[in-house]
Structure formats: C-alpha cells, structure tokens
Design a protein around this nucleic acid. Structure first.
Lengths: 349, 349
DNA sequence: CTGTTAGCGCGTTCAA
DNA sequence: TTGAACGCGCTAACAG
C-alpha cells in the first residue's frame, strides 16, 4: 500500500508540496487561491491523507506530547472518578491543540530514570503533576528541570514554587457553613477521616463566628477510598450517640456522607429535616446519578474547569517558555439538595 | 543552549555519527572497537545526550506509540485497581522495547474522529482494547482497521475475532469449588451482583457434580464498584436468613466477600470455621494489605502476567504484521487463606 | 570495524 | 500567490 504524503497530494493536484502543507496547516500568513485550496482539500479527503507526526515534530523541533505524572498509576484508581474528570478535560483541551497526553508514573526505585526520561530528554514538551505524595528528592529533580510544568489539584509542600491550578476549598466549606448558619444551625459536627478537611472545617467555623467544639469531631482511619462509605456507615454510632449535641454534620467527603445517611435512615432519622448533612465532592454527579435522584447537599469542585485551565496554562507556558500565574485558585460551589434544611430545634439567629 | 545530537557526540569523540548511532542503539550487527565505544558512552553521559524520538521515528517509519483504548476514562476508575495492575505491566513491557503508551477514550459522539485518529492515521503502531462496553458500530471500525490490535481482559461479543488475552475464570472457580468440596462442603451459595459470575459459578458446581440450588443465590443491583462492599454488608441479611441451607459461600468478588464477612463477624459468626467464604480477585493484595493480615480465600487473576502477555503479543504483531494466537487464556490461581476451612456440620465425602 | 551517503515527511525560508 | 531548496536528527544501505 502506497504511503500518502504531502507529495502524493501535490502530484495529484499538480501543485508543490509546500502549497499542500500550507493548506493542511491552515496557514494564515499566506493566501492560497480558492480553486487550488478546494482541489487540495478534495484530494486529501479522497486519499484519506493524514500528516506524519514524526516528520512534523522533527521539523518543528518538538514532541507534541505532554506527560501526566503520578506516583503510582494505582493512585488514580484510589481517588476514583475524581482525578479522571480532571484528566479527561486536560486530554481534550490538549488534543485540540495537537498534543497527546501520556499518563506515567514516577519510578520510586529509579529516580535517575525519571530525571532522564521526563526532564532532560525531549520526550515531553510539558509535564503535568497530579496529586499524590512525592518525596523531597523527587521534587528537587522536578524543580531543577527546564521543561514547562504545572501542578494540578495538589498541595504537596515540596512542589510549592511550581505554577498550579487548585480549588479554594476553604472558601467552599465556609460558604457551606454559612448556609447552615443561615438555616438556623449553630452546632455543627465534623465527621470524617481526613485531618486536612478537619482543619479546613475548623477555619470555616471560625470564619462564620461559630464555636468549634472539638467533642463533635469524629474520625476513623481508612485504608483506601473503596472502604470509605462502608467505614462511615459502620462508624456512624459515633454520630448516633451524640445526636443531641448538634443539628448539622459536615462530612469530609460525599462517600462518608452517604454512608452516614444510610445508617441514619435505617435508624428512622429524617435527614434534611431532623438533621442536616453536607458532603464534599459532588460525587453523585460523578457517579452519574440522575439529576432528580441526587439527594446530598455538597460542595462541587470544578474538575472540568480545572482540567481545562491546567491544559491552557501549560499550553501558554510551552508557547512562551515562561510561567504566567503562580497559582490559579478556582472557586468551589455549594450545591443545595435535600439533605439539608431549616434547623428545627436550633438557636435563633 | 546548544542542542546535543548524534553529531555533537561524533565531533567530540572524532568518529562518524553512524558509529555513535550504532553504539546508542546497541546494534548487534556490527562490532565497535572497545576504545571507541567507551569514549562514545562517556561523551553521551557527560553531555547528557538523549536521542530525538521524532527523528528516530521518522527514520524508522513508525510512531513508537501504542494506544490503550477505553470507552470512558472513568471506566478505569470504576474498575478500580483492577485495570491498573494490567495497565502498569503493559506500560512497563512496552517501555522496555521503546514504546510509549497513551490511554485514550472512544469519543462516542464522534466515531469518525475515532476512525481517523486511531486507525487510519499512523498515530499509533498498535492498539490495545481494555474491557468495557463497546457498540457494534465501534467494533466494526476496529475490525476493519489495518493496525495491529489486541483485546485484554474483555469478552465483548463484538470484538470476537480479535486476538485477546483473557483468564480462565471458569477453571478458577471450578478449582475453588473443588477445594470446598474436598473440605467437606456440599451446599454452597452464590452471593453477589453479577449475572456472568453467577453463570460461571453454576458451571463450576456442575463441573464438581454438586447440585446448584437456585434458592441459594442472592443478588442485588449495584450502581458502581465504590458501593459494592457497602451493598454486600447491607444485603447480608439475605445470607443470615438462610444460614442453615449452606456451609460455604462463593462471592462474586472480594469486595462483596469483605462486606459479607464484616456483617457475619458482627453477628458473632466465625468465618473460616462455622462458615467458609471465597471471593474473587485477590483484592487484598491489590490494596497492599500486608501479607500476614490477609484473610480472604480468593481466586487470583494474574494481572501482571496478563499485562506482559498482552504487550508481548502486540509487540510480535507489530513486528511480524500478523496475529499469532487467537486467544491466550491464562489460568487463575486459588489462594487459600483463613476465610475457609473444614466443613463441620457438612456431609461426609 | 567504520565512514559516507541517501533518505524518512514535513515546515520554512527565500525567490519569483 | 506559489515553488524550489534546505534542514530537522536519525537509521540503514553501501562501500571501504
């Protein structure tokens, strides 16, 4: 089978390869006569021509390839649909600009390999770092590389000085607490497993001038995300035993909230009226629960937007060779559903 | 910053670029004098040289890129650590041969795009199809493409005639049932959500000349893998209410088994002595549970091996242009842990 | 054992 | 508005 190249098209239409190239690339700097342009596009379609990317990249001196780096591939599985929503949008945004995305891992037992493969070689035009625990040593390698890079949805201390796209969780949680306060709630408990979320909750309570009673915080340790909902269900006794002490519960994430709600419902406690529950992540949307069946009031993290922003910032950096923004913080959005309502036995405002 | 190319090295060592190329590629067809080889490798190291892949690919007429295709990226998240174990091994095997792997999705709203991007263009040298639901239309596109391709861990009816690497689940389950039978169990229930697993269980019972009592099968519908363990815990009443009817339970997968065990343990039923439970997937290993803490007797699916085999078969096909094996079926392995034991009140053998 | 040479297919001058 | 010519960096065939 004969290879279809620019030359093939050129010969067929009786123009030069460069003219064909200009048409293919939609080159704005020089105008091509309508008739030739039509003929070329026609031939391209007919012969099913597609450019050779290796040749194009060689000529342009780039790889048209971007790396998405994680510590372990499994990590992406553990964070479930979260990371994927971001990844999908990064991929799509890059694709539109002719870049492909490779998901790779940091080989913890071979940091030199990582250095060579990802950073010094021209295998990738840019690198995106996903969330995950990275060592200080790895971070040093990353920082010292010349390649355009960006961090998404992560707050590793070691990657501090690299441009990043993150969300304003504190503001999101503060608005959630503010909403509960407006609904008459004063005593709000934290239920979950994450110390970082607990800290954000504490700040949000302070931001709302509500007292943060440590006695209302429940924690448990969970090995992985798969067991989270389950753990929340099992540990719900912690909530049940203290029901008189609060009217609202802020859960570290939606899985935790769903597990808790299940247990409360079994105990005939009406979530939404007798007690208000807020989660974090808008997991019902990610899990494709039909819109009218979604129940949980939650804080939506703009993952699509994060993906797009990340890709766009990186594209700019790859074009200009300089970083634009130190950190782009995207707002979270409170989504009010049926798991919250007016506080019946609560304090007045 | 000056670009380091073959030529740079060649000039520095005072040899020709092709000699350098031969050393870099470790070309077995021609021997290079020790002294020159040493000098070249030394210079490569010092100047931190790395080959330009675009140039290499252009010269070789290939992309050195393989696609791993899924319907949606989220799918990989939903199947959790399962697919990743395979993916990691595919990636590693391909990497050793100089190929990189791109994880891509089938854009369900743009099949022509899929056709063009993945199949007719030379963007990928080969394609690996992961598990997931694909339409007949998509399958047709795939079948009609010239590109070397392989299916892994999937049994879509539409991709029937494409080479594949799968596991022999039936044989695995049969050996599990056989083991239970040897331990004195005669009445074994199926607990789970998957009709395909139920069918395999049925066959395995028949293979072991055990009667398959439909009354012992429990099912529930689950939206996604995250809720599976939880669902299994909640639905365990189905098992509890019928305890007298069986001595062993085969669970559709390990998450289901773990949820069930949790509930049984709460009810003071001793798993392993009073009742035997077998799962499927060896999830405790995937979740990095320490070896001595693993409890569940399960059927191990050789994911590492599947990844390697898949990559190796594809590499062969890319080299020879022909498919070698229609279907490679890898054996599963029964792993006996503490959740199973002798049947105390069971029939004699 | 090693160097010379001729492409791989495309983008981009520079002329016309 | 278009074409000719060169080069991107590498591999492979051929010649020594």
């Amino acid at each position: 089978m004969q290879k279809i190249t620019l030359k093939t098209i050129a010969e067929k239409v009786k123009v030069s390869p460069s003219t064909v190239s200009r048409v293919i690339r939609n080159d704005r700097t020089c105008y091509i006569s309508k008739s030739k342009k039509q003929a070329i596009l026609e031939a391209v379609r007919k012969l099913n021509y597609a450019p050779n990317f290796a040749a194009r990249n060689l000529a342009l001196g780039k790889s048209s390839n971007v790396a998405f780096v994680l510590c372990r591939l499994c990590h992406i599985g553990e964070s479930g649909p979260f990371t994927f929503k971001i990844l999908e949008n990064i991929q799509e945004t890059l694709r539109r600009e002719g870049y492909s995305l490779s998901v790779i891992t940091i080989p913890h037992d071979n940091l030199n390999g990582f250095r060579e493969i990802c950073l010094s070689r021209k295998l990738y035009d840019g690198i995106i770092f996903g969330s995950g625990v990275i060592s200080e040593e790895t971070a040093d390698i990353i920082k010292n590389s010349e390649i355009p890079k960006i961090v998404v949805d992560d707050n590793s201390p070691f990657l501090e000085n690299i441009p990043r796209v993150i969300t304003d969780k504190e503001e999101g949680i503060t608005s959630a607490i503010s909403y509960l306060k407006k609904m008459g709630h004063r005593k709000i408990a934290f239920y979950g497993h994450s110390t970082s979320m607990l800290e954000l909750f504490r700040k949000a309570m302070i931001n709302n001038e509500l007292s943060f009673d440590k006695k209302l915080d429940f924690r448990f340790s969970s090995g992985n995300i798969y067991e989270l909902m389950f753990d929340a269900y099992v540990n719900a006794t912690l909530v049940l035993e203290n029901l008189s002490k609060f009217t609202g519960v802020f859960c570290a994430n939606d899985f935790v909230a769903l597990g808790l709600i299940q247990r409360l419902t079994e105990k005939k406690i009406k979530v939404g009226s007798e007690i208000s529950i807020i989660g974090f992540d808008n997991i019902e949307e990610l899990l494709n629960v039909p819109e009218d069946e979604r129940f949980l009031t939650t804080i939506h993290k703009p993952r699509e937007k994060m993906g797009e922003e990340t890709a766009e910032l990186l594209l700019k950096m790859m074009k200009n060779g300089r970083m634009r923004n130190r950190a782009k913080k995207l707002p979270c959005r409170l989504i009010i559903r049926k798991s919250t309502g007016y506080c019946k036995g609560g304090d007045e405002k």
